Amino acid sequence: MATRNSKLYLLITLGIASAFGPFLTDFYLPTLPVLDKYFNTSASLVQLSLTFCMIGLAVGQLFIGPLSDKYGRKRPLLLSLGLFGVATIGCIYSQDIHWFILFRLVQGLAGAGGVVISKSIATDLYEGRELSMFFSLLSGVQGLAPICAPALGGFLLEVTDWKGIFWILFAIGLLLVFILSFFKESLPKKCRQKENIYSTFHNYIPVLHNKRFINYVLVQAFAMGVMFAYIAASPFIFQTHYGLSPTAYGLCFGANAVAIMLGSFSVSFFHSAKQAMRTGTVGFGLVSLMVAVALISNATVIIVESILFLFLIFLGLILPSSTALALDEERDNSGNASALLGFLTFLFGGVISPLTGLGNMLYTTSIIIIVCCLGVWWCTRKAISDIVC
């Protein structure tokens, strides 16, 4: 394609766009213990703002994915970023926790554009091993968001309040709009869905009937369930239970993001995405038991952090490989397929997150991790018949 953007531009731009949705959750994590005091509410209601943002990220993809198949990738992406700016201003000027939760939902709906469309753009331009390699690199770039977000959020919380963090989110949205103005459309008009917009949504039906695609999606959903449980519980475990400062917590969170990046980059050393996902699944399951024992036995923060680092390396193997395998199954309906992939993973995360706050958080987080790892193993076994049991 003569008018295609350079691979480096695509890698950086799509990495930022796809990480923008998760950035919404990670950047304000250090403020969770502060928000309950600001709004004079409970920790569970503050966690609900995280849940509603994830639900928005999930549901938004179901609509934006098919729209991008119909109208191209660039316009829906820019419109979603405009809506994000409006929702961010709403969060800043919210008078109570209920308005804040509502605008967090809208933020999630808008942030879904970058998550779903970035995957569709990659599927437009690459296939097979090249697609798997690109997703491996993309996941590595995405890893920069969780490295920078909590650490930067924790640092900013030392010098400003939570509203300053949301103003920075607004500025990042504007910067992304500027960067995307140089993007060259990846889906030509001749390749777009020709039916009316209502018919475009009917394309979900054949995608849902693809059992192998669904199994790959469920692998990622269970894996992301672990990630979202960790995201929701980590500020309270590290800051409240272990007494770390917001800055120290941000550094721990950033170190764990490095682990995911290492796992993602390691995918390129495997012969196939299936082999990478198989290896990640086995390691993920074994180390999950170590994580649970460390949390339940109230091990030191150094031990917990060390085991989590190893655990998240295997998560890094699973995420890009399962994404590439899923989208390679549904190239003709990449927008719908990417939307379903994102919907189920973020919806699963939205359901899982508040469960960590039930009872003793160390115990509930351990149980959730083990159950999700069993789900990853089972669905991988269903998708790849020669999985090592």
Rank of each mutant, 00 (worst) to 15 (best):
A2S: 15
A2V: 14
R4N: 13
K7H: 11
Y9D: 07
T13Y: 07
G15V: 08
G15T: 10
I16G: 04
A17W: 06
A19I: 08
G21R: 02
Y28T: 05
P30V: 10
P33G: 03
V34I: 11
K37V: 12
Y38G: 02
T41E: 03
S44A: 15
V46P: 01
M54L: 15
V59K: 00
Q61K: 05
G65M: 07
G65C: 10
K70Q: 14
P76I: 02
L77N: 04
L77Y: 10
L83P: 04
G90Y: 07
C91N: 13
Q95P: 13
H98Y: 15
W99Q: 13
F103I: 13
F103M: 12
R104D: 03
Q107A: 12
Q107L: 10
G111C: 06
S118K: 11
S118P: 10
K119G: 11
I121H: 03
I121K: 02
D124R: 04
G128W: 09
Q142K: 12
C148G: 13
C148V: 15
G153V: 00
G154C: 04
L156H: 02
T160E: 04
T160V: 13
W162E: 00
G164P: 05
I165P: 00
F166H: 00
W167Y: 13
F170P: 03
I172A: 00
L174Q: 08
L174A: 08
L175D: 05
L176V: 12
F178K: 14
S181I: 10
F182H: 14
F182Q: 14
K190V: 15
Q193M: 11
Q193F: 13
I197N: 04
Y198M: 14
S199G: 15
S199K: 14
F201A: 05
I205Y: 13
P206D: 05
V207F: 10
V207Y: 09
H209F: 13
H209D: 14
V219H: 01
G225N: 14
F228E: 04
A229E: 01
Y230C: 02
A232I: 03
S234Q: 03
I237Y: 09
H241Q: 12
Y242N: 03
S245R: 08
T247D: 04
G250M: 07
L251R: 06
G254L: 04
G254P: 02
N256F: 09
V258R: 09
A259Q: 05
S264V: 07
V267S: 01
F269A: 13
S272P: 01
G280E: 09
G285V: 09
L286N: 11
V287R: 05
L289H: 11
M290D: 09
V291C: 11
A292M: 11
V293T: 11
V301R: 10
I302P: 06
V304K: 04
V304W: 02
E305T: 15
L310K: 03
F311K: 06
F314I: 06
L315K: 07
P320F: 14
L325G: 02
E329K: 09
N333T: 05
N333P: 00
G335Q: 02
A339Y: 00
L340I: 05
G342L: 00
F343S: 08
L344R: 00
L344Q: 01
G350F: 05
S353M: 03
G359A: 12
C373W: 02
V376D: 06
V376K: 06
R381E: 13
I387N: 06
